[in-house]
Write a protein that binds this DNA or RNA. Structure first.
Lengths: 166, 166
DNA sequence: TTCCTTTATCTTGACGTCAAGATATATCGA
DNA sequence: TCGATATATCTTGACGTCAAGATAAAGGAA
């Protein structure tokens, strides 16, 4: 009987006509996301980062040398709007973690690159982040993790399929 | 090979020392949360609500007659800060969906109640919301939904256990 | 070339959220 | 009863996000 169960019980009493099983799954998905995010934030914050800045730095780092992408490419990887990315890059540039250079191939655009400080920082934080992720998942056995991953993958596939937009 | 798989592949190339299996599970959790939230927002927006306002109205509705709770009780159910709740209630009161009354039992506090318009609206929106939730989960078989719910419940339990704060 | 359309990025304005602090009222012990 | 402490709520200031619109440059057609 967790928090979600208590919510469902209230609904069953007040609106017995509603089918609340999906509400249970989606409620737990949301609560887990909130809890997991809060735990991951700890490592970011301990290193002066936020989820937003970590997201950008990690995307640049894993893209490989020369650790530089256009804002458009960063937008595609991170799934945020252009205004959000402009804001993120402004802050990261002010912190000296990335550098904007003109794009030699396209006068409209620019290229965002990790600075040496940005590279050093993200390489260190990612290591701590992965250890933190491992801890977050430690409540599940390896078998359960695999089962969960399979179910999430299948579910996510329904959203990412070309014609799925419901 | 979905978006998360592509991210993991980049990390395996750039940082083969990292254990990226947890990253896959957590990455899919986040993406699913984002996708599901976006889909649920559609029904809220179609009725002039946001996730924030739906959250408050639904909490009042399922609490049963007289559909009134203190801000503190709403804060406990919705897991937001007091400042956030003040802001939500200001907007809902301005929209005429809830009403703040002084709490006869505690001069410091107040009681927030659904107005008749608020009740009518949330009762209608909840019905559409549940149908939407059902659609969101339709990619999974009933068996898979049950398996997923069990895994999520188990995982969430680790966070909600008394001494679990890591 | 010249103009029209598309694309890349930034700007603006409005939300929603939080942490920290302010204010008013309760409550409890001396 | 009085003062110290606790509690309920609101205020303030800073982020992060988005939608919509503004700029500037690229690309293509005539």
């Amino acid at each position: 009987m967790d928090h979600v169960d208590r919510v469902l019980e209230q609904w069953r009493t007040e609106r017995p006509d509603l089918e609340v099983v999906p509400m249970g799954v989606l409620g737990r998905l949301k609560r887990l996301h909130d809890r997991v995010s809060a735990q991951l934030e700890r490592v970011y914050a301990a290193n002066g980062l936020t989820a937003a800045s970590f997201d950008v730095l990690a995307t640049l780092r894993r893209s490989g040398a020369p650790y530089a992408l256009s804002p458009s490419e960063l937008i595609a990887w991170t799934m945020v709007t252009s205004g959000t990315m402009t804001n993120r890059l402004d802050r990261l540039a002010a912190a000296g973690l990335v550098e904007r250079k003109p794009n030699p191939e396209d006068g409209r655009g620019s290229v965002v690159a990790l600075t040496p400080q940005g590279f050093t920082l993200i390489d260190r934080v990612v290591t701590a982040h992965v250890a933190n992720q491992h801890k977050v998942l430690s409540a599940l056995s390896p078998q359960d993790r695999a089962a969960l991953d399979g179910l999430l993958r299948q579910w996510l596939g329904a959203f990412e399929a070309p014609q799925s937009a419901p």
